[in-house]
């Protein structure tokens, strides 16, 4: 019986490694080897190109802004959905998750419809000289949209498992909302929260479809890194395209390492508490 179990164990582990190797590692290796195909000098030149740097800065700007907005939203939404009972809670929960399953193309399209030239509010925007679509705000909006539920989704299960007893007790003793949150709730969700932030930032950096609809592809102005990759690819500059991709791959890996560390520390801490 134990022998059979061991066989099953290593078989399953083998399958897992094979699957992850073929589906995730090989594509990454492809990106890196293609990027370095013509030597390091070409690689360095590609990633220090003026437009690459500008695209990187824009990507960071969009990712940071989106993460900040979603952090604010995620905290409030998670608090609302786990600490209170009210009508329409399920519906609200579904609406918050909706952006995950909305096609990126549709995500881009809805912002073009809302803020583009045929929208009712376009004349107003034009008067105020605010550009949203085909400009940086549109890119940020699209990024916020696609990463919208990332933080609240991480927080809700933790808060739900924790229940509301402690907060109720504190409230009955007269503590204010912010104090309760800071002293009681936040320590519980600290790690889940950080984990959500990291994921949100990672996803924000890599968004392609929605941003592509909204960007206008203005070189050096509204091109994010993923769009810059597409442009280089379309210019038949394959090596630079993969070189720029490798920046994104490495950022993704760094972010995921941070995520693992965060999770590890969080787990150890919660084990120590027990």
């Amino acid at each position: 019986m134990r022998k059979e179990s061991k066989l099953v164990k290593w078989l399953l582990i083998g399958i897992s490694f094979l699957f992850i190797f073929v589906m995730l590692v090989l594509p990454l290796v492809t990106v890196i080897t293609e990027a370095l195909k013509q030597g390091f000098a070409v690689y360095a030149e590609a990633i220090s190109d003026k437009y690459t740097v500008k695209a990187l800065l824009l990507t960071l700007e969009a990712a940071v802004t989106a993460t900040v907005i979603n952090t604010i939203f995620g905290l409030f939404a998670a608090w609302l959905l786990t600490k209170f009972h009210f009508r329409g809670k399920k519906l609200l929960g579904s609406l918050i998750d909706l952006p995950v399953t909305v096609s990126p193309i549709i995500a881009g399209l809805i912002f073009v419809l809302t803020f583009g030239r045929q929208s009712a509010i376009y004349p107003l925007l034009e008067k105020l000289d605010i550009k949203i679509v085909f400009a940086v705000p549109g890119i940020i909006l699209a990024t916020v949209f696609v990463t919208f539920p990332f933080i609240s989704r991480e927080l809700i299960p933790v808060l739900e498992a924790e229940g509301t007893d402690e907060e109720e007790a504190a409230a009955l003793m007269g503590a204010g909302g912010f104090t309760i949150f800071r002293k009681i709730t936040f320590p519980h969700i600290k790690w889940a929260f950080l984990y959500g932030v990291v994921l949100c930032a990672a996803r924000a950096m890599g968004e392609f479809g929605a941003v592509s609809v909204l960007s206008g592809h203005l070189r050096g102005k509204t091109n994010t890194l993923p769009l810059h990759v597409e442009i280089l690819f379309n210019e038949f500059k394959y090596v630079p395209a993969f070189a720029v991709s490798s920046i994104l791959v490495m950022t993704a890996i760094v972010i995921l390492v941070i995520r693992s560390v965060v999770e590890y520390i969080g787990k150890r801490e919660s084990e120590n508490v027990h």
Partner: peptide
């Protein structure tokens, strides 16, 4: 704050005296 944050970079860059900026789509 959110709207401000989003439209922060939204102001159009107009050409100043010495430089003309053209966009060719």
């Amino acid at each position: 704050a959110v709207i401000g944050l989003v439209s922060f970079a939204g102001c159009s860059d107009s050409s100043d005296e010495g430089t003309v900026i053209l966009t060719n789509v």
